[in-house]
């Protein structure tokens, strides 16, 4: 045990130390090798221009190399592999794409991803907005916000364990220890293994992501709500608008752009959702999604890189436009500050 801690500690020091050593080492080396000197005639020679020419590259080189290897090359390579067979050696044209279109499992994943897209961002944003609004009106609002934000710190796998326990099923005659089935029994219903009930089980998995993302929506929308000028609200109240009217006619339009940012950001999370499905059902009982399907094809039967790449491309094509829009918005907001 202590040995393992020591090994871990050494690994950490070595890893961080190596990158520190690179930056200090190369820069000191540059200062030494390109130090100011004397010309043959004895006059002072400044090599600062040379140093200034080289130094920027010492600064950006590690980033560029790593980005090249870990992001640029893989994008090109994944696109290439999508036209090749399972091992990536034989060109097969569009057959992986044809397979994807005809494959029922792939279509099920698309359908489920669409379901997720429809419900998770909408529900998270709506509940987040509700909580942000309510919490501003009560004295214990900050505690409420903390508690609702908390799931955001929990890993998707941890959340899956938490919710699997909520949905737990013990057989029809045994006492139920999952709270959902306990409530069902208390209301006179029949307990069930809910996550195995096709179609509806998708919603049980979605609830987990809503549970996590609502806090994110709440925090951002809460900040936006504070930015709504008091005058606009007061003016409407003087005109005799009720609280609900003020909220929908005055407040919502003013925070609409933030709502969209929250919505799209959660949309991106949804498109990549993987851990929850893998941990809860591994895509069984009609719950498969794209990212899980891709992971399966990477390893199933030794791995089919061609099909896996096609699914990765589909995810990428779905994500990119939303990301581009989101980053534009983010930049616009940064520029306004």
């Amino acid at each position: 045990m202590t040995q393992q801690v020591l090994v871990a500690l050494l690994a950490v020091i070595a890893g961080v130390g190596a990158s520190l050593a690179y930056f200090f080492g190369t820069n000191l080396l540059l200062d030494r090798l390109a130090a100011d000197g004397r010309k043959p005639d004895g006059s002072y020679l400044s090599r600062e221009p040379l140093r200034n020419l080289i130094r920027p590259w010492l600064f950006v080189l590690p980033a560029l190399v790593i980005l090249g290897i870990y992001l640029v090359y893989p994008v090109v390579e994944t696109a290439r592999l999508s036209f090749f067979d399972r091992t990536g050696t034989e060109f097969v044209g569009l057959s992986n794409y044809v397979w994807a279109i005809q494959n029922p499992e792939f279509r099920e994943a698309i359908r489920n991803n669409l379901l997720w897209l429809l419900f998770v961002p909408a529900l998270s944003t709506a509940v987040g907005l509700l909580v942000a609004t309510l919490a501003d009106r009560v004295s214990w609002g900050n505690i409420a916000k903390s508690l609702i934000f908390m799931p955001m710190a929990i890993s998707f796998v941890g959340a899956s364990v938490i919710w699997k326990f909520v949905y737990d099923f013990r057989g029809p005659d045994a006492p139920q220890i999952g709270i959902v089935n306990a409530i069902v029994v208390a209301l006179g219903g029949e307990p069930q293994a809910w996550i195995t009930v096709p179609f509806w089980n998708n919603f049980l998995l979605m609830i987990i992501l809503v549970w996590i993302q609502t806090g994110f929506a709440m925090v951002i929308l809460s900040a936006a709500l504070r930015g709504v000028p008091e005058e606009t609200i007061e003016a409407a109240q003087i005109d005799g608008a009720g609280e609900i009217q003020v909220f929908f006619r005055i407040v919502i339009p003013q925070i609409m752009s933030t709502i969209l940012v929250v919505w799209t950001t959660i949309t991106i999370v949804v498109l990549k959702v993987f851990d929850i499905v893998l941990a809860m059902t591994n895509g069984q009982w009609g719950t498969n999604v794209l990212a899980n399907s891709m992971y399966n094809w990477m390893f199933r039967g030794g791995g089919d890189f061609g099909r896996g790449s096609v699914i990765a491309l589909v995810i990428m094509i779905a994500v990119v436009p939303i990301m581009v829009w989101n980053i534009r918005r983010f930049q616009a907001e940064e520029a306004m500050r």
Binding site: L67, Y70, L71, M316, V319
Partner: peptide, 26 residues
């Protein structure tokens, strides 16, 4: 400088899933 930074920002949009297969192979 500008070009390289623009590319870095562009890479923000690449989902992690795109990288996994080539990196696993590598």
């Amino acid at each position: 400088r500008q070009w390289l930074f623009a590319i870095v920002v562009g890479l923000l949009v690449v989902p992690l899933q795109m990288s996994l297969i080539p990196l696993l192979r590598m």
